[in-house]
Simulated scan of single mutants.
Amino acid sequence: MATTTARLLQLLGLLQAQAVWSGDELADRLGVTPRSVRRDVDRLRELGYPVQSSRGLGGGYQLGAGRALPPLLLDQDEAVAVAVCLRLAAGGTVAGVGEAALRTLAKLDQVMPAAIRAHVAAVQEATVTVEYQAATVDSDALLVLARAIRERHQGRFDYTAKDGAATSRRVEPYRLIATGRRWYLMAFDLDRDDWRSFRLDRMSEVRASTFGFTPRPAPDAETFIRRSVSSGWEYEATVRVRCAIDEVRDRVGGWGTLTAVDDAHCELRVGAHDLDMLAWWLLRLPADFEVLDNEELVAAYRRLAVRAGRIADGGGEADAG
C-alpha cells in the first residue's frame, strides 16, 4: 500500500509538471507497465482528481479543470528552488508580485516538513536582495505570455518602439528571457515573417489568441536576445585590453565581442545606451585597455578622472572659473 501511495503522489507530480503525458512516458518515469499507469489514473479519478485522457496524435493524460485540484508536491530541491525564486520575486521586476511572493513564502513555510524547512531557512538567511532601478512589467502580461508559450497559442499585443512608434503585433511566442534589468519575449512575428525580440515593459493589451501553432526551428533564446539587445546601441567602442582573451572572457560573457590579438592582448567590441555607464562597465575589466575608435568615450574618461581626483583630494568642489 505504501508503494502504491508513493507512486500515486509521484504520478500527480508528473501530471503537474507537464501539460500532456503519453501512457508510455508515464510508465517509463514510474518504472511500471502502461496497464499499471491506467489503474493508477483510475485511482486518482476515484479520489476526485480531474485526470483527462485522449487518443490519437498528441493525445495522452493531462490534468483537467475542476473543483478538486491536486496538492502542490515538492521535493527538497524543488522547495528550496521555489523559496529562492519567491525571495528574488519579492524584490524583483514584476509589478505587484512582491507582496504576493512574501505571502506565498509564509504559506510554504507552514506546510513544509521540518527537514525541508530547515534547508529553505538556511537559504533565506544567507540571501540578501538588493533593489536597483529596473523596468517593471505587468504580472498579468507575464502570465498570459507564459501560458501562451506553454500551450503553443499565438499572442497579440500593442507595442511601443524605442522611437515612440505604436504598432499591433501578432506573434508565435517561444521564450521569456529575464536579463536582470528587463524582461524580453522572443517570438516569431507573423506579419514581418521573422524572429523578433520585444520588451515586456513596452507592451500593452497583451492577450493570447485561440489560434494554435506548430513550433518551428528556433534560434537559441539567450544568444538571440543578447544579439538583439546589443544591435541598437547608441554608443559603441572597440578597446584593446592588455591581457589574454581567456582572462576577460567570463567578465564579458555575451555582452560584447572578443577577438584575440596575441598571447598578451585582445580586442573587445561593446556598446551601450549610456556613455558613462559604458565607461564604468569597462573599468570592471581586470586589465588596462586602450580605446581605439571612440573619442567620446575617451572624453568621458577624462571627466571621470577629474571627478575621481577631486574625490581623492577630499571631495571638495572645483574652483570657480
Rank of each mutant, 00 (worst) to 15 (best):
F213W: 06
I245L: 09
M112Q: 12
V120E: 10
L88C: 14
R227V: 11
D138Q: 14
R156M: 08
R249K: 11
R269Y: 04
T223C: 02
L12Y: 02
T223N: 04
S209D: 11
R147Y: 03
E131P: 15
E295K: 01
A19E: 12
D189Y: 07
R192C: 03
V120Q: 07
G23F: 07
R55E: 03
E296V: 00
L72D: 05
W280R: 05
V84T: 06
P217N: 04
L200D: 01
R38M: 01
V120F: 08
Q133E: 13
V32T: 15
V137M: 03
T210A: 09
E234Q: 15
V37G: 02
E317W: 03
E290Y: 05
A122M: 10
I149Q: 09
P113Y: 09
D250E: 15
G64Y: 00
A161E: 08
G253E: 02
D158F: 01
D42N: 03
E247H: 12
D158M: 04
L88N: 07
E99K: 15
A65I: 02
G13K: 15
E25H: 04
R226L: 13
L12I: 07
D77P: 00
V97A: 13
D246Y: 07
A187T: 02
A121Q: 14
D42Y: 02
R307A: 15
G212K: 03
G164T: 12
L105F: 00
L15T: 00
E46T: 01
R240F: 09
E236A: 08
A141L: 05
E295P: 03
R45D: 00
S231G: 08
A81F: 11
Q154L: 10
R181T: 12
R147Q: 10
G309N: 14
M186V: 12
R199K: 11
V32I: 13
P173Q: 03
L285C: 10
L283Q: 12
A166I: 06
D75G: 12
T127M: 10
A114I: 04
A287E: 08
T127C: 08
A6Q: 11
E295I: 01
R303G: 01
D246A: 15
L190P: 07
V298A: 13
M186G: 05
R310W: 02
A165G: 08
I116Y: 11
R45N: 00
R175W: 02
W195P: 04
L282G: 10
E290L: 09
G321V: 13
A178F: 13
R117K: 08
R29A: 15
N294E: 07
R182C: 08
A106D: 11
V144D: 00
V41S: 00
L142S: 02
L30Y: 12
